[in-house]
Every structure is written in C-alpha cells, then in structure tokens.
C-alpha cells in the first residue's frame, strides 16, 4: 500500500509538472500573439523561435505564426522558410496552403508542384508511412489467418491487402523522395559563386525567398541548384544565406 501511494505521488508530481510546463508555453504563446497584435513582430519572432529551437516544439502552427510575423516584418525569405516547414508537417491545412501559395506567388514562384508532389500532397510523410505500415501489418495478419482458415473472405482480404500494400508503399516511397530531398530557401539576396570559397568568381545573383535544391555541402558552403526559365542554374552559396527545410 505504501509503495502504491509513493508511486501515485510521484506520478502526480510528474503530471502537475508537465501541466505547469505546458501552461508556461501557453503563456509565451499568448505574449507572442499580443506582441503580434501590437505590431511588435520582433518580439513575436523571438518567442516563437525560442519555443521551436530551445523547447524543441515541432508544430506546424508555430511555424505558420512565425512565418506571418516574418512576413509582416518584411523578411520574406524567413517567411517562406517557415511556411514550407509548416506545409511539410500539415499539408492539408487550408490556412497553411493559402499562405504558402500567397508567399510563393509574391516571390515569383509557383506552388504548383510536379506530378509526384501532387500525387502525395494530401498526406504528410508520417501519415503516409503509418498508412503503408498498417496495410503491410494487415497483409501479414491476413496471410497468417489464411494459413489456418482457408475461407473465401480471407482470400479476398489477402488479395486486397497485397494491392493496398503495394500502392501505399509506393506512395510512401514517392513522398519520401519528395520530402527527404534537401531543399532550402534563400534567406536574403545573395550571390552564387563558382566554388566554395569567397575568392571564387561570382556567377549569378539570387533573390531572397527563392526555393532551391541543395546538392552538396563543403564546410560552410552549399552547392545549390534551381530552375529559372527552364534553365537549371547551380552554384555555391554560404550556408548562412540559406535555410534548409
């Protein structure tokens, strides 16, 4: 009995502690939103960046609000970076989709993705991974059942789960191909160089908020590429000028 009471007390302390922790975070969110309403976007950014980077809260709505604050501040590169992070976690959210579309249009880019992106746009990578895993587990279970009960409906279920497993595993692979690609946003207007050194020749200017693919990295430099008017352009940029997502 004593042991039980002791266990209960410890559990309660943990529960209360976690509530206290959450309420502190909600207080900070409230402060951030008040600052936003008063036009103090720097404070809003500071609070949300702290929650994301220090408290390690990986939440699409935090990125969404942070993107709005950067946008109001006029920092379009960071606004695009954070809306892309939000979209990656919650691709079906209407507000996130709308703001992403708006920001991309504003920066002369298009939100219309390729065939693979469109086919997998409804789900986040984790959602589609879970769906694919569930279909594989159901396939295994139906195969197990089929070993013992050779009934017609089990045969049908087995056939269905084979098809679903192939379909969802393929979609998960495609989504992973899209999401796990190293992509980044140019945070401020920069120059592309011919190599990973300050001394290397300047190739092009690249505007802020441009979404690029990261091909490789050497020290503090990344080799990036992007398509401009059907021409693929690549070059080196310092890492502090881009934000990966």
């Amino acid at each position: 009995m004593k042991k039980f009471l002791c266990f209960l007390s410890v559990s309660l302390i943990f529960v209360l502690y976690s509530f206290a922790d959450d309420s502190a975070i909600f207080n900070q969110i409230s402060n951030a939103e008040s600052a936003f309403k008063n036009g103090d976007y720097n404070k809003t950014i500071e609070i949300y960046e702290t929650l994301i980077q220090v408290e390690k809260i990986n939440n699409p709505y935090f990125y969404y609000n942070l993107s709005n604050a950067y946008y109001r501040k006029g920092d379009i590169g960071f606004a695009v970076l954070n809306i892309e992070k939000a979209y990656k976690l919650s691709p079906r959210d209407k507000d996130i989709r709308n703001n992403r579309r708006y920001l991309l249009a504003m920066t002369g880019q298009t939100a219309d993705d390729g065939l693979i992106e469109s086919a997998t746009a409804l789900f986040s990578l984790n959602e589609i991974t879970i769906i694919a895993s569930a279909s594989v587990i159901l396939l295994i279970l139906s195969l197990t059942a089929f070993l013992f009960f050779r009934r017609r409906f089990i045969k049908q279920a087995l056939s269905l789960f084979i098809i679903l497993s192939i379909l969802f595993c393929s979609l998960a692979a495609l989504k992973a191909f899209v999401v796990l690609k190293d992509r980044a946003v140019v945070l401020s207007a920069s120059v592309l160089k011919s190599g990973p050194k300050k001394d290397n020749a300047v190739l092009f200017n690249i505007p802020s908020a441009k979404i690029v693919s990261v091909l490789s990295s050497v020290d503090d430099w990344s080799r990036i590429s992007f398509k401009d008017n059907d021409i693929v352009i690549d070059g080196w940029i310092e890492n502090n000028n881009i934000g990966k997502f």
Binding site: F26, I29, N59
Partner: peptide, 21 residues
C-alpha cells in the same frame, strides 16, 4: 488573396515527431 491569412490560435502544443521513415 490580397493578404496572408491571420495567425492561428494555438490550443494544442503537440510536438510532431521527426520522419518515422
């Protein structure tokens, strides 16, 4: 749209896990 949509009211501070895959 003429402008971005307004901030969301955050009622859930669920932290999303990294990519399971």
């Amino acid at each position: 749209g003429k402008d971005i949509n307004y901030n969301k009211q955050i009622s859930d501070i669920k932290t999303y896990a990294g990519n399971y895959i």
